[in-house]
C-alpha cells in the first residue's frame, strides 16, 4: 500500500474513489460479523412487510465502506481520527456504489499533519445517499 504524506495533499484533491457492490451474500456475512441481525437486511418478505422495496444495505456497512475509502487512501502510517456519516437514503444490494471524497482543509496541529475530507457514498444513479466527513493525521516527510 502506498503511503500518503501531508505535504503531498492539497485542498481540492480527490480521495481515490472506491467501488463497491454489495451482494445479498455480503449482507448476510456482514450481519454475522457485526451482530446486526435485523431481518430487513436479509429477509426479503420481512423487508417488504416493513414497507421497503426489498432487503436494504446496513447503514453501518456503508459506514464501513466509507471507512475503507479513507484508510485505503491515507496508507498504513495514516491515522483516522474522525469518521462521520449521515444516512440520507437507503441503498439496495447489487447496485454499483462509489465512495468518493475531496480534501477540504489541511493544517499542522501539535506537529501532526491534519487533513479533513468531505466524503460520500453514491448509488448507481450517482446520488450521494450517504454523505459524511473524515479527519485524518498524515505522516510528514522528514519526520
Amino acid at each position: 500500500m502506498a503511503q500518503l504524506y501531508y505535504e503531498d495533499v492539497n485542498v481540492g484533491d480527490e480521495v481515490t474513489p472506491l467501488n463497491k457492490n454489495a451482494s445479498s451474500q455480503q449482507l448476510v456475512k456482514y450481519a454475522g460479523a457485526s451482530g446486526d441481525y435485523y431481518q430487513i437486511h436479509y429477509d426479503d418478505g420481512f423487508a417488504r412487510n416493513n414497507g421497503l422495496p426489498g432487503i436494504i444495505i446496513h447503514g453501518a456497512l456503508k459506514n464501513a465502506f466509507l471507512g475503507q475509502l479513507v484508510t485505503d487512501w491515507m496508507g498504513p502510517e495514516g491515522r483516522l481520527k474522525k469518521l462521520s456519516v449521515s444516512y440520507r437514503q437507503m441503498d439496495l444490494p447489487n447496485d454499483d456504489l462509489v465512495c468518493k471524497g475531496t480534501v477540504t482543509d489541511k493544517r499542522v496541529e501539535d506537529g501532526a499533519g491534519i487533513v479533513e475530507c468531505e466524503i460520500a457514498l453514491h448509488n448507481g444513479e450517482g446520488k450521494a445517499t450517504t454523505p459524511g466527513k473524515a479527519v485524518v493525521a498524515l505522516p510528514m516527510r522528514g519526520n
Binding site: 456475512k29 457485526s34 465502506f65
Partner: peptide, 12 residues
Amino acid sequence: KFAQAIGDSNPL
C-alpha cells in the same frame, strides 16, 4: 472475519 465481510483486503 469482519474485514472480509466488509470486503476490505487491507493487510493491517
